[in-house]
Design a protein around this nucleic acid. Sequence first.
DNA 1: CGGCATCCGTGACGATACTG
DNA 2: CAGTATCGTCACGGATGCCG
Lengths: 213, 213
Amino acid sequence: MPPRQQRRRSYDQYCASARALDAVGDRWTLLVVRELLGGPRRYTDLHADLPGVSTDVLAARLKDMEAQGLAIRRRLPPPGAATVYELTPRGVGLLPVLTALAEWGAPDLTERRPTDAVRAHWFALPLLNRLPAPKVPSVVEVVLDEGVFHLRLGGERLGYGDGPAEEPDVRLVLDSDTCRELGEGVLGVDEAVTAGRITLSGEGPYAAALRGS
Amino acid sequence: MPPRQQRRRSYDQYCASARALDAVGDRWTLLVVRELLGGPRRYTDLHADLPGVSTDVLAARLKDMEAQGLAIRRRLPPPGAATVYELTPRGVGLLPVLTALAEWGAPDLTERRPTDAVRAHWFALPLLNRLPAPKVPSVVEVVLDEGVFHLRLGGERLGYGDGPAEEPDVRLVLDSDTCRELGEGVLGVDEAVTAGRITLSGEGPYAAALRGS
DNA sequence: CGGCATCCGTGACGATACTG
DNA sequence: CAGTATCGTCACGGATGCCG
């Protein structure tokens, strides 16, 4: 039979929000975007950090996102030849959508269910709009028990990445509960530092700003 | 058989965005929120403004939203006794999510497909972050060929409503294409006024601000 | 008449197995 | 490693019927 390219189900509404949901409203799509916002990823790593998604659905979503110009498939040069998926600028433009979702969903994190999976970089999104803006672009490395991630603040490449930063201006060592309260906005960085819930290291101006105010 | 309350499918991730998508990630849910952001609505009106949704899915979504504290079912006092659905503060908190989605999806509106349904108040969301903030809370009534809606700007009850406003400070008469360009941000209000693409009426300070700048 | 519940066909989803 | 193949289940869309 011909591989009849079944037209994706659309809301068929002349409305900006409906158009956006046509593109990213499918199950798992925005969570794939959340993963790729942390940098290029291989298929297997995506599958590992999205527990519950089946292999065929993940493949289908990546294909859809590629067809819509949200992500590209790129083959890394040897050595370490592997294919990675990376967001296009259009895909990166979804960052405000995910931060808005994260801000709204943050109160639901008070309940931590035993079935919940956890990854360190999932804490990055709520922090992006809660940390004070630095005067110069700064990189913050965040160390949790669950892993390490980093934030890029104040520059034009606002965003986050999985794993340690190359040259962090500030390093924060804290537990995930403190990190959650920071992301929820019920706790300030300075409060957490003076309360001894954050071990802050770094000598630059942004480190001083986080300590001071 | 027992009415085994099937547990809603969850991502089971300790992540704020995933929690938000657990609540509002189902098909149609955010579009129901978009409708209710315009004010309380009856079931039949919701069904009419969400072409394509089946009756049982709409009923199920409303039930879910009620169970999750996003909306309430309220019976209007006679005369005109009818049951309406209305967002709770928690539900209204989704406004930033929908504006972010609308802003991202606005470029896709350049293509107007013949199968697309249109409602006037669907143009409200992109306008909310594009119109300049007034110095005092102001109400803008927008008149399109497709219908009328109004915007509440500058106050604490930022939002929009379907139908005409009670006491608008400004009235804008324009066509939907101009409205789309305003929402996309490629056209300013003052430009559109001087180009004769908007008929602006109103004598208050915000009307002057829209004309002037 | 508004507010659903029921039935049915189709497609999307989730789990597992398997392959280049 | 990076998917494809297969299959059972469930959610969705459309139509119709019920009931206050």
